[in-house]
Design a protein around this nucleic acid. Sequence first.
DNA 1: CCGATGACAGATTTCAATATTTGTCATTCG
DNA 2: CGAATGACAAATATTGAAATCTGTCATCGG
Lengths: 196, 196
Amino acid sequence: MAATETLTAERILEATEEVLRRYGPAKATVVDVARVLGVSHGSVYRHFRTKAALREAVTERWLERTIVALRPYVDGGQPADERLTGWLTALFTLKRRKAGGDPELMATFQVLIGENSAVVDRHEDHLVEQIAEILAAGRTEGLFAAPERDAKATARAVFDATDRFHNPAHAADWSSPAAEDAFTAVVSLVQRALRA
Amino acid sequence: MAATETLTAERILEATEEVLRRYGPAKATVVDVARVLGVSHGSVYRHFRTKAALREAVTERWLERTIVALRPYVDGGQPADERLTGWLTALFTLKRRKAGGDPELMATFQVLIGENSAVVDRHEDHLVEQIAEILAAGRTEGLFAAPERDAKATARAVFDATDRFHNPAHAADWSSPAAEDAFTAVVSLVQRALRA
DNA sequence: CCGATGACAGATTTCAATATTTGTCATTCG
DNA sequence: CGAATGACAAATATTGAAATCTGTCATCGG
């Protein structure tokens, strides 16, 4: 596997993801990444100052995909209340499928999440921002009441109230059949709270 | 430290708690517990079949204390909506004080929680039961609307929606000053959802 | 000139030998 | 007689020496 292509940050991130998938977060080393790419580990350090920075970048990429996947639910053509339910359901379904489909990968992901709380905080802000957009649209459409406190706080409250259904820390609960009902109940609670 | 008193399950549980506090969950051994009590470790096994059973009993005792501490908020003389806010605030304050005041003890507690999910599930059921009582009272008082689904599911939804503020998994977030506001926002969201 | 290399020091992890702990039970003690 | 003991086997944890990894940098090669 000689480096036929130029060594880019992008290629390193792909290789790192592969190594993390294959060996898990505890055993994945920079040397492994370099081996997959057919380069010396020194070359990896030209693109990422530390192993931690490399893992952080992978985490960021990973989280970014969720943001992109949820975008359609923010902009979609239905009424805002349906879009909100759709968005929340999509987020839950996405995470649950990931957790159920490949528990080991989810465990790896959770370790990265734990290592990079600053990245996660920024990611949460993005998600809250998307909720805020839906809520603002809902107010324009006359579906949602004007917020008692500032709009951002309400969006954050919706995010926090549904935490149990998107925070990977709770992934173990999602396989239970009761989880579906619990999710529906919380979403309906949230919808009642927002209704004009 | 001769066994001047009779060796009871109660005394063993107290000693186990002390050992867990002092050495943490990883280093606390049955031999340590026996040493504190001045007996042989074989005697401890007369009262608890396994180390796991002993830890489970400690966990149960620990959780029971929360139930007792919250009881007054269920029965208290104020209107039900205020009692609900009081109950939720008490739970959050209790947990937060525990987490902030002695982080190591909290970490120990979290390990026990993780080991004994069956006990935790039963504990959650008790808490949800307390919420359900307040909600039922609130309906009688005309403060809360009749539930769309069954009453138990609504109580569970309130519990789930506030998960971030009582689940020890989130203890790390509670020290942030934003946590207080986030909590207030979610409680106010829940109250709006329930209002008649 | 510029990206890649690999030798290197210090930090971290692995592994296998050693010690401790768990759980049992025949025996002792009151 | 029933509660407590402590010797014991099997499971688990600790330890420290050896191996590997991280991060740097002087040197190489296109």
